[in-house]
Design a protein around this nucleic acid. Sequence first.
DNA 1: GTCATAACTGGCACTTAGTGCCAGAATAGA
DNA 2: TCTATTCTGGCACTAAGTGCCAGTTATGAC
Lengths: 191, 191
Amino acid sequence: MSTLGGMTGLRARTRDAVRGQLADVAIGLFLERGYDATTVDDIAAAAGVSRRSFFRYFGTKDDVVFHQADEAAERIAGALATATGSDWDCLRQVLTAWQDEIYASGPVLELVESSPALRARMVEKRDELRRLVSAALLARPGAELDAYTADLLTAAAGAVLDAAAQEWLRNGGDRTALIARGFDQLAPRGR
Amino acid sequence: MSTLGGMTGLRARTRDAVRGQLADVAIGLFLERGYDATTVDDIAAAAGVSRRSFFRYFGTKDDVVFHQADEAAERIAGALATATGSDWDCLRQVLTAWQDEIYASGPVLELVESSPALRARMVEKRDELRRLVSAALLARPGAELDAYTADLLTAAAGAVLDAAAQEWLRNGGDRTALIARGFDQLAPRGR
DNA sequence: GTCATAACTGGCACTTAGTGCCAGAATAGA
DNA sequence: TCTATTCTGGCACTAAGTGCCAGTTATGAC
């Protein structure tokens, strides 16, 4: 256990590599045949590992689609801790900057929308993110809000992102502009 | 097929009765031993039906907890169609009135919060409700909003309910007052 | 280089949710 | 009463996810 600060360790690095490769193979199959029609056996076989090993890299079949989002979630919470301005402005800045990481851009979002199981999991992940962000907002250095207000503002900010993502899927357009409009409209009253 | 308007039919009525009884037995077991530790076999045995029949009444194990919510969702959408006032006020009135149906009051809410699987399903159901409500808001007689605004307002109203439910689980108190405060704070600007 | 330790791997068996199918019992309507 | 529909239980099957074990490989100390 003599690891230096920046040292990642060969073991961890190969592990991350396998993980990423596994995810690529899996998403490729999902896009090709559909999520439900692809079994974990298929993924494992295509990636050249055993079924058992797949579950050592991903706890569930759908985690494969959201594993970047998990990492992003903690970085978002971290970014929020250092943001300045009013609570609402902090949420606005951080979430606008991280929108691409929250809503996996491109084909992955359509993949998620195409499968009820994946959509359910996405909503769940969104909820976890919401909790994390709310806690980070509440724990900010000079915070002057209560837990209820933190939950409320965070959920409202999430509402903006959700609505913008839906509209973007419907009609395309400038997602950042949609988000800006939403944040303007919902800016909280009173303090 | 000579059923009169109000006639429910004996078959449908007994079916509803079995359904309700099955739900009661299942929730009882869930509260007693926990959700994950209760199998569908347990439920079926305790209710005196076969495992196969259970799945004829409920598509999944967790549907048993949310089957009232599904019915409530459509009634909420119906109520919204006949509500009057600004879009935001309509949402406020209808959702405030139906809060108990949305957030199963009492022990069931705690049961849901105690199991990750149930919590995930609840979030999913909430999402379905959100879509239904948004569509109903958009389709209202004299509606003057676009799909994006409908989604935005609906999600914001949902944010109020979510935050209020969390706060209520934390500290108790008057849930209706919390909801009122949330709706005041998030009242949208512009038009 | 050697060696003990820890981590990774594949294979197997098992539980559980959920589905398709079929044959028998119960029921509604003519 | 007779016929068509519906409900039921049982069986077999798929697929996700987990625990366990034994073999292999990399790691770190000497």
